[in-house]
Computed example of a mutant assay.
Amino acid sequence: METTFCLQRRQINVLPAPSITDLRDQWQYLFTQKGLYAHFELLTEVNILRALEMSMEECGRIIAEFFSNKPSNADVRAVLSRRSDIELFFFVIQLLMAHFSETQEGLILFANASSTPADVERTHALPATPRLILLGICIQQWMISFEGQIICAGIQPSFLSGLAAVFAIFYTLNVFNEYQAEAACTLEFIQRRFIGINPEKGTKGGRVLSKRTGKVPQKKKTVNTRVASLLKKLVDFEWDFI
């Protein structure tokens, strides 16, 4: 996959954009958990799963403590009231989405633990934009949907590994300038705080063709104001927390 990386990028970037079915037929390994991680690292020089794990160890507890001390709205208070044995990272993402007034369904869907990809496609109205699909309340497995179909099934039964893979999809398939509106703030927060990709500070953001329009989207020159505000508040809180 490393040897053929340039060929993969050429096919992904071609216009008109290839269908997901064609890409999966040509590059089956790319649409696996390990393939997505590897392609993302070659593209960005970031080991995405390690970056998420380190960020969670560094600031996950601080984010949870911040919202516990300063719940920003009723949705955040509702998430805080429901916490029991929820995995920390899942809890943090729920808090972020509540803070930004974004619905969980904008990024995450749930299905029965025994569901197959065909079952999920048949029983769910899968949107065109990427979604992480968690199987079972205890996250026994996860899948990723894109363009209305299941394109990847994970091998690690953890929320963090699934989130890493679904985030990699945005960069691997050139849709990182087009985060879905339903989860745009949360995804940008993940990009900047957890993954450490800040386009305005360098070239990692890139200028790529939009799969949706066939044009080069305008590069974001500033951080979303709501994301920037939360980042600043967290920095201030972290000093007090330490």
Rank of each mutant, 00 (worst) to 15 (best):
T116L: 08
T4I: 14
L163M: 15
I20N: 10
F170C: 06
M1E: 00
K201W: 05
E182V: 07
F67V: 12
L230V: 07
S229Q: 12
I190Q: 05
A51V: 03
A118W: 10
N13H: 08
T222V: 09
E53A: 08
I190E: 01
A164I: 11
R77Y: 04
H39P: 02
I93T: 11
E121G: 12
D25H: 08
G202C: 06
S115H: 15
F170N: 02
N177K: 11
I190D: 04
N198C: 08
G206M: 02
C185F: 08
R83K: 15
V227I: 07
F194C: 06
S161F: 09
A153S: 15
A153W: 08
L7Q: 09
L15C: 04
I20E: 11
S72M: 09
A78V: 07
L230H: 02
A181C: 13
G162C: 10
E182C: 07
V92R: 03
N69S: 13
V120R: 02
E238L: 00
M54A: 10
R212D: 09
I12V: 15
L187Y: 04
N174M: 09
M54G: 07
E87D: 15
Q191H: 05
Y37F: 11
A165L: 02
T116E: 03
F146T: 13
I12M: 00
F66M: 05
C152I: 07
T186M: 00
S68L: 11
M56G: 13
V223W: 01
F146I: 11
R61S: 12
D75A: 11
K70E: 14
S19P: 09
I197K: 02
F66Q: 00
S161V: 08
T129S: 15
D75Q: 13
F91P: 06
W239V: 06
E200I: 04
I169A: 00
V92T: 11
Y29Q: 14
F241H: 14
R193N: 00
S161K: 09
A98E: 09
Q191L: 01
L80G: 05
V208A: 05
M97N: 05
F40I: 05
S72F: 07
R131W: 05
F146V: 13
M97H: 04
E238A: 13
E87G: 07
G60P: 06
Q191K: 09
S19E: 05
A17Q: 10
Q11M: 12
T32Y: 03
L135C: 14
V14T: 08
K219Q: 14
V208K: 11
H39C: 09
S210W: 10
R226Y: 03
A153P: 10
E45W: 05
I48E: 01
K204W: 04
E147P: 03
F91S: 12
E45N: 14
A153M: 14
G205H: 02
L231C: 14
R9F: 00
E87C: 11
A184R: 15
S158T: 15
R193H: 01
G60M: 04
D119L: 08
I144P: 00
L134N: 03
M1I: 09
I93H: 03
P16N: 06
I137S: 15
L187M: 13
L231T: 10
I20M: 13
F31R: 04
T203R: 08
D119F: 08
S19F: 03
A51F: 00
G106W: 01
F189T: 00
N73H: 09
F237D: 04
T213A: 03
H124G: 00
Q104V: 12
I190G: 00
